[in-house]
């Protein structure tokens, strides 16, 4: 007596359909995580929204001076900033949707967003 004989034809159907459903869930919920644009804010207001597909550097003015944002190979970073502690510069490259670099003293931020904006503890 094998275990498999307890699975009736309808059960096989259930198994196949549910397996497809699980794979579909994985494909829809586990992909699209890479960001496709960067939202740059200055002084709390939207400065620019740029696509990550083009390599470029953007200069953003703030109260302390100019913050330079670099976009390269679908990643973004703050290349230089006049803030005293340089936290946002040291954060390095941002790649995933939802990642954010904040230069609080200069009031500049870069946030990566994907196709649909996901929630996190900062913007919920």
């Amino acid at each position: 007596m094998t275990v498999l004989q307890h699975i009736k034809p309808g059960d096989w159907l259930t198994l196949v359909l549910c397996s497809i459903g699980v794979v579909w869930l994985m494909l829809t919920l586990w992909t699209g995580e890479l960001a496709d644009k960067a939202v740059i804010r200055s002084g709390g207001k939207l400065f620019r929204e740029v696509s990550l597909s083009r390599n470029q550097t953007i200069e953003v003015p703030g109260p302390l001076g100019i913050s330079v944002i670099a976009i390269q190979d679908r990643k973004a970073r703050i290349a230089s900033d006049p803030s005293p502690r340089q936290y946002c510069v040291r954060q390095g490259w941002l790649q995933q949707a939802g990642e954010i670099a904040l230069c609080l003293p200069n009031q500049v931020s870069v946030e990566l967003v994907g196709n649909h904006k996901r929630y996190d503890s900062l913007n919920y």
């Binding site: 307890h6 699975i7 009736k8 034809p9 309808g10 059960d11 159907l13 259930t14 198994l15 549910c18």
Partner: peptide, 15 residues
Amino acid sequence: HLPSRWFGPVSHSIY
């Protein structure tokens, strides 16, 4: 209420 000829405890359990 699924027809028991085709569906057994395995289906019930998965659902």
